[in-house]
Amino acid sequence: MNVATQEKFSVQADAGKSSDIIVEAVDVEKSFGTMKVLKGVSLTVKRQEVVVIVGASGSGKTTFIRCINHLEKIQGGRILVNGHLIGYRDVRGRLVEDRERNIARQRQEIGMVFQRFNLFPHKTALENIIEAPIHVRKMKPAEAIETARGLLDRVGLSEKAGSYPAQLSGGQQQRVAIARALAMKPALMLFDEPTSALDPETVGEVLDVMKELAKDGMTMIVVTHEMGFAREVADRVVMMDDGRIVEEAAPEVFFTAPRSERTKAFLARILK
């Protein structure tokens, strides 16, 4: 066997392992007590795809995105990230909650940005970003700091490295939070209403960072009320209502020719 065919083989093996699909949710069910908030949600996300989830509050979109990195337990169905079940192990056909160690390892590959930023208030912007790379990824501090400075530069905050979260505006905090998630070099980024807690004038700066990220090929699942962002950046828009996905379409179709009545009503309400 010559070198060329060997290379070909290894490429094929790689392709088989890391398939095109990064998230595969099948019939996900979730209840808080007796209230069912997810009633069988199925969604498949491919690498480098930007999926925007929209819907009225209480439709289950935030709960669903939180299930993808197992911040919420699920009562039915299954979610695979990178081809592996997240949060659970399959024990003879039954799903059993996985060990903390395994869940943590999978979460390293899944960045998350929260509505309320959740920066660590006792650490500076730079310290927030290097925390997990150093203590979870075991990166050398010098290397982590270099990466962090690069990321701060990328989100336009290089001069705020030494500031504490309380000294930053909401938009700045959210950009640091995005940099913090990116520092782990995740394969997938989850955004849970990243601009909902922001002053209107700072929403744009966060959306700009997210647009850049999408342009660079990051796989993103975004829960948002920003229809402009969905229209402009999304590869696919998913509409959730009452714990179910009621519509799934490319943005141009979604916004101009929605099929479900729910979506029509929703769009009529917010695009007015």
Binding site: N69, L71, E100, R101, A104, R105, R107, Q108, I110, G111, M112, F114, R116, N118, L119, F120, P121, H122, E131, A132, H135, V136, R137, A177, R180, A181, M184
Partner: peptide
């Protein structure tokens, strides 16, 4: 301490002993 602190720590792949020691207890 806001539960968001634990959630953010977990989402970065931190485990209980690490986020308790470095994030929650210092606060």
């Amino acid at each position: 301490i806001d539960t968001g602190q634990v959630e953010a720590s977990k989402s970065l792949g931190m485990r209980y002993h690490l986020f308790m020691r470095r994030i929650i207890l210092p606060q």
